[in-house]
Amino acid sequence: MCHPLAAAAQVAEVALTGDLARPVRLTVPDLLAWPQHRARVSFECATSGIRHHRFAGPLLYDVLSDAGPAFDPTRRKDRMRFLIAVTGADGHHAVLSWAEIDPDFGRASVLLAASIDDAPLDRAGPQLVLERDRCGARHISGIRAIRVDGGYAART
């Protein structure tokens, strides 16, 4: 039988940090507690051609909203200055704007996928899935960190 600490070490964690009221570390089992959204995605991979996958997981917007982004409620459209940097275990990075995922603006359905083709991603870590992207470059595997940063625009 496996030692409990050894089993826990095999579950990948994602650190949500930055301009958040409630920074947190999440695992795939944590993400499974959120409402699950499904997406069938086809994207072009530079090294292996067209890829087809089925993903399931919560929306990035829902997870980050729960962490309490530090929007200034007295400033109209303050959330538009926030960027989201996502880093995978292999060092792959992608940056999204808050406006892209916000239902009041871009409404992009961006998943923190907890499974791919019905296989859980507990050990590998969740994947960033942008179902509208034609190219797979922003599909980040094994996410280890998501940083929310509102310091990119001039503050007046």
Rank of each mutant, 00 (worst) to 15 (best):
residue 42 S to M: 10
residue 42 S to R: 15
residue 44 E to H: 15
residue 44 E to D: 14
residue 44 E to R: 14
residue 45 C to K: 02
residue 45 C to M: 08
residue 45 C to Q: 09
residue 46 A to D: 14
residue 46 A to S: 13
residue 47 T to S: 10
residue 48 S to K: 07
residue 48 S to V: 13
residue 48 S to L: 03
residue 49 G to S: 03
residue 49 G to Q: 01
residue 50 I to Y: 14
residue 51 R to D: 09
residue 51 R to C: 07
residue 51 R to F: 00
residue 52 H to G: 04
residue 52 H to Y: 12
residue 52 H to T: 12
residue 53 H to A: 12
residue 53 H to E: 06
residue 54 R to V: 08
residue 54 R to S: 15
residue 55 F to N: 01
residue 55 F to D: 00
residue 55 F to K: 02
residue 56 A to K: 11
residue 56 A to E: 02
residue 56 A to G: 05
residue 57 G to M: 02
residue 58 P to F: 04
residue 58 P to M: 02
residue 60 L to K: 02
residue 60 L to E: 08
residue 60 L to I: 03
residue 61 Y to P: 09
residue 61 Y to G: 03
residue 61 Y to W: 08
residue 62 D to R: 00
residue 62 D to L: 00
residue 63 V to N: 00
residue 63 V to L: 02
residue 63 V to H: 01
residue 63 V to T: 03
residue 63 V to Y: 00
residue 64 L to Y: 11
residue 64 L to M: 11
residue 64 L to P: 09
residue 65 S to I: 14
residue 65 S to M: 15
residue 67 A to I: 12
residue 68 G to D: 06
residue 68 G to Y: 07
residue 68 G to W: 08
residue 69 P to A: 09
residue 69 P to R: 05
residue 69 P to N: 10
residue 70 A to S: 12
residue 70 A to P: 10
residue 71 F to D: 14
residue 71 F to H: 12
residue 72 D to A: 11
residue 72 D to T: 01
residue 72 D to I: 00
residue 72 D to Y: 05
residue 72 D to W: 06
residue 73 P to H: 04
residue 73 P to V: 14
residue 74 T to L: 13
residue 74 T to P: 00
residue 75 R to F: 08
residue 76 R to T: 12
residue 76 R to P: 00
residue 77 K to M: 05
residue 77 K to P: 01
residue 77 K to R: 13
residue 77 K to H: 10
residue 78 D to F: 01
residue 78 D to C: 05
residue 79 R to V: 12
residue 80 M to F: 02
residue 80 M to Q: 08
residue 80 M to G: 02
residue 80 M to H: 09
residue 81 R to V: 08
residue 81 R to N: 02
residue 81 R to A: 10
residue 81 R to W: 00
residue 82 F to W: 05
residue 82 F to P: 05
residue 83 L to W: 10
residue 86 V to L: 12
residue 86 V to P: 04
residue 87 T to Q: 11
residue 87 T to V: 05
residue 89 A to M: 05
residue 89 A to R: 04
residue 89 A to E: 10
residue 89 A to H: 05
residue 91 G to S: 02
residue 91 G to I: 03
residue 91 G to V: 01
residue 91 G to M: 01
residue 92 H to G: 04
residue 92 H to I: 04
residue 92 H to L: 12
residue 93 H to V: 11
residue 93 H to E: 15
residue 93 H to N: 13
residue 93 H to Q: 10
residue 95 V to I: 12
residue 96 L to D: 10
residue 97 S to Y: 07
residue 97 S to L: 01
residue 97 S to N: 10
residue 97 S to F: 01
